[in-house]
């Protein structure tokens, strides 16, 4: 009797396995690999997206965190997975496009189907007790004592580091770079006074700005940032007229080579569901991000400026292993 039972169960399982081949995508849960730890800015927005997609496509979208090596380990997982549309990954397009240049992963931005959700901007914020009332005063102070003012970022090649490096080039200043494990710890260090300045994303500073713990001096963009519950943060171009700011797009993506049907269905979900998602819109407004539901060629064109700027910044600083030129990234 017992062996029969086992056989029946075995047959049932075999059936389960075979039925996985055909049918319409998605007919089993879809995995989105977040290559950063749970709770970070990529994780948060991706969980909003996963919830909306689960609803729209009638299958669970499961978020799996695989942090490590600036997101390249999790991204590699998605790159190496079966091209069946059941494995996606998420993050900032600027990172995805520059892994090749930095020698972390052999991939180019054109190898991916991009589905963008929000664009984040960096904000220069200082401790509420710091003496700098506007961005001009901060630049003066940095010029007066080069390399003495501590700037907190989420680490080398993070959005915050990228921002302060651009300011350094544009204003001719020098600073003391202090790195933290992520955007939030960097912001906290400025709140507690361990560092004086942070240049992390608006999303990561939003609560502290609203709470009066951080004074925002400028946003790295060409127009002012309106933050719910605070007001307007002036653009950096008020002080550095020829500063070129490019938005940093976030989204989910899967490698090219997945069935056309997957891309078509996702594009449809993107233009009907995500583009009208109140949850994503209010999330973005809350966190000081721009709502950016783009996909396809439009998305490819939008992410390129940030990849160009960052890749060449790294290459010119001698921190890149491969020339952006050879990887099809023209100098901006």
């Amino acid at each position: 009797m017992q062996p029969t039972k086992t056989l029946v169960l075995a047959a049932a399982f075999a059936g389960l396995a075979i039925s996985g081949a055909a049918a319409e995508w998605p007919e089993k849960p879809v995995t989105i690999i977040v290559p950063w730890s749970a709770g970070g800015s990529t994780d948060q927005v991706t969980r909003v997206i996963a919830g909306e997609l689960s609803d729209a496509l009638g299958q669970e979208f499961v978020v799996v965190n695989q942090p490590g090596a600036s997101g390249s380990i999790g991204t590699k997982g998605a790159l190496d997975a079966d091209k069946d549309g059941y494995t996606w990954t998420a993050g900032a397009a600027q990172d995805l496009g520059s892994y090749g240049v930095l020698g972390m992963l052999e991939t180019r931005i054109e190898d991916w189907n991009l589905f963008l959700d929000v664009a984040n901007v960096s904000v220069v914020g200082v401790n509420a007790d710091a003496p700098y009332e506007d961005f001009g005063q901060l630049i003066e102070a940095m010029k007066a004592s080069p390399g003495q003012i501590a700037v907190a970022t989420a680490g080398i090649s993070s959005a915050g580091h990228n921002a302060i490096e651009k300011i350094k080039n544009a204003a001719g200043i020098d600073y003391k770079h202090v790195t933290y494990d992520g955007g939030n710890p960097a912001v906290i260090s400025t709140v507690s006074g361990e560092t004086e300045v942070t240049t992390q994303l608006a999303a990561e500073q939003a609560e502290m700005i609203r709470g009066g713990r951080i004074r925002p001096l400028a946003v790295l963009s060409e127009s002012a940032l309106e933050l719910d519950g605070y007001g307007s943060i002036p653009p950096v171009t008020n002080w550095l007229a020829d500063f070129k700011a490019v938005p940093n797009y976030f989204g989910i993506w899967t490698p090219k080579g997945v069935p056309d049907e997957v891309v078509a269905k996702m594009s449809e979900a993107w233009s009907t569901r995500i583009a009208n998602s109140d949850k994503l819109k209010s999330y973005a407004a809350n966190r000081g991000a721009q709502f950016a539901p783009f996909s396809g060629d439009d998305a490819q064109a939008r992410v390129m400026p940030a990849i160009q700027a960052f890749s060449w910044l790294m290459f010119d600083a001698g921190k890149a292993q491969n020339s952006p030129e050879e990887l099809g990234i023209p100098r901006p």
């Binding site: 730890s37 749970a38 709770g39 970070g40 994780d43 948060q44 969980r47 909003v48 919830g51 939030n184 906290i188 709140v191 609560e207 502290m208 609203r210 709470g211 009066g212 713990r213 519950g229 949850k279 209010s282 999330y283 809350n286 966190r287």
Partner: peptide, 27 residues
Amino acid sequence: TLAVPGSAPAAVLLAAMFIHGVRPGPL
């Protein structure tokens, strides 16, 4: 009170609060 997680599970809890539109923090 600070929107700073005290431990790893609390970090995920914080993320979930943000996702649901609750705004923990100094305010």
